[in-house]
Simulated assay, not measured.
Amino acid sequence: MSKINRQGSNAILSTSVEYHNFVFLAGLTADDLSKDITGQTEQVIAKIDQALEDNGTDKTRLLTAQIWLKDIRDRDAMNKVWMAWLGDAGRPARACVEANMADPRHLVEIMVTACR
């Protein structure tokens, strides 16, 4: 039976799960909720970079991305940060929708899947 590797586990989730060289990240949010959409997106992307690195991969290996915005009108500002981060790396299949957040100060949450 193949091993499932979990990191950052608590009572309800793991920050990442690796199985058969696929890396699934939990939805990640910013820590500094006083920041605007640009600042929060930058923080989330930094967390994604670190989590992917911790699992032996990086943004060039992204397969999918799910993005939740508190206000869909923030999509253009979030996309500016997203596109600058991706650069010429492969583009993942992606969804971006407006959603109510668990904490109303969260402006963006991003969840990605990558391979190693």
Rank of each mutant, 00 (worst) to 15 (best):
D74W: 11
Q43N: 13
I110G: 05
E18A: 10
K3S: 09
K35A: 10
T29R: 14
T60I: 04
G8Y: 06
E53I: 07
K35I: 01
V108I: 14
D76E: 14
G39S: 01
S9K: 13
V23C: 07
I67F: 12
D36V: 08
P92S: 03
W68E: 08
A102W: 00
I37P: 00
C96I: 15
G90S: 08
Q43L: 10
L69R: 00
T57M: 11
V17M: 06
A89F: 07
V108Y: 05
K80H: 01
A30Y: 11
L25R: 00
D49E: 15
L69H: 01
A46M: 09
F22E: 15
I4K: 03
N5P: 00
A102V: 11
L86G: 02
M111V: 05
K47W: 06
A30C: 07
L13M: 04
T64V: 12
F24V: 12
V44G: 14
L63P: 05
I72Y: 13
R75A: 11
V112Q: 01
E98H: 06
V17W: 02
L69T: 05
L62C: 09
V97Q: 14
D71N: 15
Y19Q: 09
S34I: 00
A95D: 10
W82V: 02
L63M: 12
T29H: 04
T29W: 01
D36P: 09
D88N: 15
D36A: 14
T41L: 03
A65D: 03
Q43A: 13
A102I: 04
R116K: 07
L86S: 05
K70M: 09
I37A: 04
S2N: 09
T64Q: 10
R73N: 15
I12T: 11
D88W: 05
A30E: 10
A102N: 00
F22N: 10
G87I: 04
L107D: 02
G87P: 04
F22T: 13
I110S: 03
I45P: 02
H106K: 11
T64S: 10
H20L: 14
D58E: 09
D49P: 07
M101Y: 07
G90Q: 05
T60N: 10
R75I: 07
L63W: 05
M1H: 09
L86E: 00
G56M: 06
W85N: 06
W68A: 03
I37W: 03
W82A: 02
A102L: 06
N5L: 14
L25Q: 00
S9T: 11
D58H: 12
N21P: 07
T38G: 00
V97Y: 11
N100L: 02
E109T: 14
N100R: 06
A11Y: 06
A84G: 01
G87C: 06
Q40P: 03
R75M: 08
N55G: 11
G39C: 01
A51S: 15
V23S: 04
D74R: 06
A99H: 07
